[in-house]
Amino acid sequence: MASESSNSKPVILVVAGVIEKQGKYLLTQRHEHASQGGLWEFPGGKVEAGETDQQALERELREELAIESATGQFLADSVFDYGDKVVHLKGYLTHWVSGELVLHSHQDATWVECDEIKAFTLCPADYPIVEVLESLPRE
């Protein structure tokens, strides 16, 4: 779902799943040849026309990671200008329902504690989501 911003760069709406499992969170690493190559991110992807954020996130996680998920609480959004495009990223707490992780769109994945996330070099748009995640009460 791209729209034009006032400076005529495309604005791309993207959803990201902050997947929690046994107290750890999933980070995925972008392929080196991709935009933001080598950086880590919360997995997800573009919202297509006619999709809700929830539908898009669950579809993207199925396509990219071969897992079934349930979208939970909205965490945060950020708007980041990457130069050639503007990404509006919306992060949601996401629950792993079923499936075994298969990396279709990433070169690596790791499970980390919340306080370990900032040790990874994330895509810039993901940092506001991390800040909100860090502020949530821990069980």
Rank of each mutant, 00 (worst) to 15 (best):
F80Q: 09
F74T: 13
E63V: 08
E63G: 01
V47R: 07
D53R: 12
V86E: 07
E48F: 08
E58S: 15
L57N: 01
L89W: 04
E41D: 13
E58R: 08
A56M: 01
E48V: 07
R59W: 00
H88Q: 15
A70H: 11
S69N: 01
F74E: 08
D77Q: 14
A66P: 01
G72A: 09
F42Y: 06
G45I: 00
R59P: 07
E64G: 07
V86C: 12
V86F: 10
D81A: 02
L39D: 04
S78K: 01
L61H: 03
A56C: 04
T71E: 10
S69K: 02
L75C: 03
H88V: 14
V87N: 07
R62M: 04
A49N: 15
E63T: 09
E64Y: 05
H88F: 10
A66W: 06
A76S: 14
G50S: 02
E64S: 12
R59T: 02
D77W: 08
G83P: 15
D84W: 07
V79H: 12
G72D: 05
L61T: 05
L65Y: 00
L61S: 04
A56E: 08
Y82P: 04
A70V: 06
A56K: 04
L57V: 05
G44M: 00
S78C: 14
S78V: 09
F74A: 13
L57D: 02
A66L: 09
T52K: 01
E48W: 08
S78N: 14
A56D: 01
Q55P: 10
T71S: 09
D81V: 08
S78D: 15
V47F: 04
L75K: 11
A70W: 07
L65K: 02
A49I: 13
A49V: 14
G50A: 11
S69F: 00
Q54H: 15
L61K: 00
E58L: 04
L39R: 11
Y82M: 08
L61P: 04
A76V: 03
Y82K: 06
I67K: 00
G83C: 12
L75W: 07
Q54V: 13
Q73P: 12
Q73V: 11
L57P: 02
L75P: 10
P43A: 02
